[in-house]
Computed example of a mutant assay.
Amino acid sequence: MQISSNLMFDRSSSRMSQLMATATKLNVQIATGKKISTPSENVTVAQQIAEFDRKDADAAAYAINLKLSESLLKQADSTLGQITEQLQRATDLVTQAATGTLSDSNRKVIGSELSALVDAMVGLGNTKDLRGQPLFGSASGTDAVIRNANGTFTYNTAPKLSEIPIGDGLTVQPTETASRVFNSGAGDTLAMLAQLASALQTGTDQAGAARDALAPLKAAGDQVSVVQASVGARAARVDLQQGLLQSTNLDRAELRSSMEDIDVTETYAELSKTLTILSATQQSFSKLSQLSLFNYLR
């Protein structure tokens, strides 16, 4: 009989310990909203959550890079649009100058305006981006377009600009080089326009010089259009990647929640059930502990 009583005490005590441990765990889950509080509780889930943390950090970095790329590409597109407007105005002026009806003085006025357009395009070529760096230049911070004393131009840009990571194994070039913008198959656009402006102001056969410049001007406009189309395609790619990143983030958050977060209603119900059983077990144990050998024999 004594052995049986000890066994009953041991079983009741063990049962209460288990129930109290379960109640404590459920209380912690309700307080934190998480299924596990230490990795040792579920190593597999803990490792997966750690991987989620890494991917969340990568996604946050990619989101910043995508926003930067989006801003730079928009600025590049806008600036290229302004350069196109300047080239269109230059084409209109050169077309006028190519006619035989204008006087030399009129062509000199056109030459002066062309010179001003060249200055404007040099300024656009040296536009600073939102980081204070040359939009169409290198990372050194120096001007992208340098006007030399002899009337030529130097483009202080690398053959290819550095790219920005926007996803796992994905990068994007966020802007363009000034040399690609202003160099077409017909040569250096700015140098050609500067020379034409000078010829219209001081040279002879001004109408002939203007006519000779029309084809290179068209090539120059086509080149800027090609560059702008490339920028637009990259902007569309960035926009697509932003959408994919947001979708992936949502999917990962849902999966993480299913592995990590508790169902509050279900957990409260489980806690209530555990506490009810614990209370009943405690009452039974209390009655059992009050039994004496005399009461038992009776």
Rank of each mutant, 00 (worst) to 15 (best):
E70A: 14
E70M: 09
S71W: 12
L72F: 10
Q75F: 11
A76K: 08
S78V: 12
I83W: 01
T84H: 02
E85V: 12
E85M: 06
A90H: 04
D92K: 04
V94G: 04
T95R: 02
T95A: 02
T95Q: 10
A97G: 00
A97K: 04
T99D: 03
T99R: 07
T101S: 07
L102N: 04
S103C: 04
S105W: 10
R107N: 09
K108M: 05
V109W: 00
V109S: 12
E113P: 08
E113T: 03
L114N: 11
S115G: 14
A116H: 02
D119G: 13
A120V: 00
M121C: 05
V122G: 09
V122N: 11
V122K: 09
L124N: 00
T127F: 09
D129V: 00
G132N: 08
G132V: 04
G132A: 02
Q133A: 15
L135T: 08
F136S: 11
G137P: 01
G137K: 13
S138Q: 15
A139L: 05
G141C: 09
D143P: 15
A144P: 15
R147A: 05
R147G: 11
N148A: 12
A149V: 09
A149I: 08
N150Y: 09
G151C: 07
N156M: 08
N156G: 11
